[in-house]
């Protein structure tokens, strides 16, 4: 009886987590394409390839983490009640969702950082010649 509740928990947890990861990374990298095009200044093949590689990394990290925290430990002489199951599941799914949100913001931060760096590089290239002209 106790074991069957834990297995029900796994069966609820796994689809939710995997669907959430796939949806979030699909959305993140559909929108990240514009950043990548901006960072690589319109070199489309490199931008799309980098985007794809980032996406694969995102999948691997998040699904790996989701599987790592799958295990439900329950030590008690009493059989697990459905209330306990709901509480354990809520801890796991809520925690994973917050983790995923933080990963999303970290990725967004990387996008902004890359965009700023590439802008700075561009500005330096365009600025130096005018500066030299003024010196003359």
């Amino acid at each position: 009886m106790e074991n069957s509740k834990i297995i029900i928990g796994y069966l609820i947890y796994l689809p939710i987590v995997i669907v959430l990861t796939i949806y979030v990374s699909k959305m993140l990298f559909k929108n990240g394409k514009y950043f990548m095009l901006d960072i690589f200044k319109g070199k489309e093949d490199i931008a799309l390839a980098t985007n794809k590689l980032f996406e694969i990394g995102f999948y691997l990290i998040n699904i790996g983490w989701a599987l790592l925290i799958l295990k439900i430990t329950y030590y008690s002489s009493k059989a697990m009640s459905s209330q306990t199951l709901i509480e354990i599941l809520s801890k796991k799914i809520g925690g994973f969702s917050i983790y995923l949100g933080i990963m999303l913001f970290i990725n967004l931060f990387f996008f902004f950082r890359g965009r700023r760096k590439s802008r700075q590089a561009q500005k330096m290239v365009t600025k130096t010649p005018t500066y030299n002209v003024q010196n003359k």
Binding site: N31, G32, G94, S97, G101
Partner: peptide, 23 residues
């Protein structure tokens, strides 16, 4: 795209917090 990503991040973190209070 920035707006979409911010919205998704907001939902994830807030709904996650809302769910985790159940525990």
């Amino acid at each position: 795209s920035i707006n979409n990503l911010l919205l998704i991040g907001y939902y994830l973190v807030n709904l996650g917090y809302g769910i985790i209070t159940l525990a």
